[in-house]
Amino acid sequence: MSTQTDGPAAERRLGEDLLVVDGLQKHFPIRRGLLQRQVGAVQAVDGLTFSVRRGETLSLVGESGCGKTTTGRLLTRLIEPTGGRIQLDGRDISHLSTSDMRPLRRDVQMIFQDPYSSLNPRHTVGTIVGAPFRLQKVQTENGVKKAVQDLLELVGLNPEHYNRYPHEFSGGQRQRIGIARTLALRPKLIVADEPVSALDVSIQAQVVNLLEDLQNEFDLTYVMIAHDLSVVRHVSDRVAVMYLGKIMEIADRTSLYERPMHPYTVALLSAVPIPDTSRRERRERIRLQGDVPSPINPPSGCRFHTRCWKAQEVCKTTEPALVELAPGHQAACHFPENAA
């Protein structure tokens, strides 16, 4: 691998695997008919295998509906997988019951996309950020209020905002409130579902920086869900590209952005609009046709073959395995680009 892989992870010491996911699957049943028999399934997540090291940021990217949020909800065990395993810190949490999961809720937290609907409008900021303490019955040194005010300060809000309501805050500030809430119990792993998508660029940068600072300070591990490839490149150590419930390519950041191997990744990258008019003419574009097929009946063989410009006969029949084509760089394609 090139020497350019240095990034935030190089400064942070990366530890052993914190999260290990093996063949993770979530099929939502579709029921029809008189007896509500199951006639099929939405294959929202269909066999994901990856791991995340302590202190690392792994991002999941892909088009709408490819299963990013579902994966996030599986990792935080808000829903139960229909197959595969999730190991957190060496412990299998795939099928833990709600009560067995409760102590682990301290370790895994989720930040939600929409800063407007994820905060209860009838609760004060103090109640919202302090809720995890109360739910987990955690003792705090100087009382919950002091702890909450410290958290507010930590995320760049004024501790005097304690008694205000969410509607009095802007989108960026609300996202900070959400982050303060997740940080309350000092989690090990934070799953952030599109944490900055709803924010303006200038505010987005503030929140991105905050997330990075917190990671450095508390040695946090992030799984980021995002669709903005520029933001993803900025925040991630490694990136997994998903399509129709599967990982198409997973690699460290530099490798993925500089030498994308999967045609889908190449297409995604070439679709990102670049804020530079001089590039308008020169850019080599790959335009994907049509839309993502339905996850109820995903295409045979390689799921991407209906939109892939490199597809051959074999792609329709044989599913390519996700294999390591360069050190730390896995892709699932019969005819990868940039392959050594």
């Binding site: 987005q204 991105v208 520029s230 490149r233 900025h234 990258l269 990102v272 670049i274 804020p275």
Partner: peptide, 11 residues
């Protein structure tokens, strides 16, 4: 311009 991460520049 400075607050947006860009794919066409060094990170």
């Amino acid at each position: 311009l400075s607050s947006m991460p860009r794919l066409d520049r060094e990170r």
